[in-house]
Design a protein around this nucleic acid. Structure first.
Length: 285
DNA sequence: AGGTTCGCCTGCGGGC
DNA sequence: TGCCCGCAGGCGAACC
């Protein structure tokens, strides 16, 4: 499932092929994603120009410009859900099962390559494609989001303060988008292992010192994953390469019942908020 | 308001 | 080989 590093890698990978181009066509074969794709979106998009793609949390943002280069005052956002991927394909690429959407842009004069199209593939259809008006940060889906994990606004101090008296498990606390965005199940498990914190521990019972360590680790893990994403997911053009997991070594995720890579103790598993949580009872407390 | 559960989906693996 | 079932999971919505 795309976590923040995959979304960021996608943004970097597809932006060079889209930025500055005029939208010629949006083909929606399956409008039923998590929310229906607005019916008239395809009509309203044609003729507008794509500004540089942005990202907020796991949302890809596509701000729009008038042909003149002036801001259009709106744009669209794209969430990949659990199984979504965006790839650039040749114009004659056959539609595969679960290919739902294609965006076609006009090439720039200086584009050497034949025009490519952005194809959205999403078997489980938990993704979303919606328009936003004005400032995307004001959109209802983005408005209440916490800080970006790689920004200065993400601090141990804030996490510590906001967690006081909270009984919620620390793992669920750091997965709460209001505290920090982009920490999905995989990274929550991995970060807590690296920080030596039991995922079940009440967020309010985690010391400032441990939050400092945790914040540092979340930053490092995500930064490394984005770097590696640049390697493993470099090819966004052609091919069949469904973006997979990061090359990064996983210590606990998917390893319940296997020995801890550090101490050999059998890794435990428990459900927290319906998501599997794996930890080492010897290394994490 | 904090905390918990549901529901949207398809692919996959296990049991028979 | 095929069928049924349970499970996975981001995250907003609905609930207590």
């Amino acid at each position: 499932m795309p976590e923040l590093p995959e979304v960021e890698t996608t943004r970097k990978g597809i932006n060079p092929w889209l930025e500055g181009r005029i939208i010629e066509r949006l083909e929606v074969r399956q409008p039923k994603l998590r929310w229906p794709i607005p019916e008239d979106l395809h009509q309203r998009l044609v003729g507008l120009k794509l500004a540089p793609l942005k990202r907020r949390a796991k949302y890809l943002l596509f701000p729009l410009l008038e042909n003149s280069g002036q801001e259009a005052g709106w744009g669209f956002l794209w969430h990949l859900g659990m199984s979504g991927s965006l790839r650039l394909v040749a114009a004659d690429a056959p539609w595969k099962k679960h290919d739902h959407i294609e965006l076609q842009v006009a090439p720039l004069a200086e584009d050497a390559q034949p025009p490519l199209r952005l194809r959205y593939h999403d078997p489980r259809r938990f993704g979303a494609l919606l328009d936003y008006q004005g400032d995307p940060a004001e959109h209802s889906l983005l408005r209440k989001l916490g800080p970006e994990p790689l920004s200065d606004a993400f601090t141990a101090q804030a996490l510590f303060q906001r967690s006081r008296n909270r009984k919620l498990a620390i793992k669920l606390f750091i997965m709460d988008n209001a505290q920090v965005v982009g920490v999905g199940n995989i990274y929550a498990n991995e970060a807590l292992f690296l920080a030596g914190i039991d995922p079940r521990r009440a967020a309010g019972r985690v010391s400032l010192k441990r939050y400092q360590r945790l914040v540092k680790i979340i930053r490092e893990v995500l930064a490394v994953a984005i770097e590696q994403g640049g390697t493993t997911l470099r090819d966004f053009v052609g091919g069949d390469g469904q973006p997979g997991y990061f090359a990064q070594e996983l210590n606990v995720y998917g390893r319940a019942g296997l020995p801890c890579k550090v101490c050999g103790t059998v890794l435990q598993e428990v459900k927290l908020g319906q998501r599997s949580s794996i930890w080492c009872k010897a290394c994490q407390a």
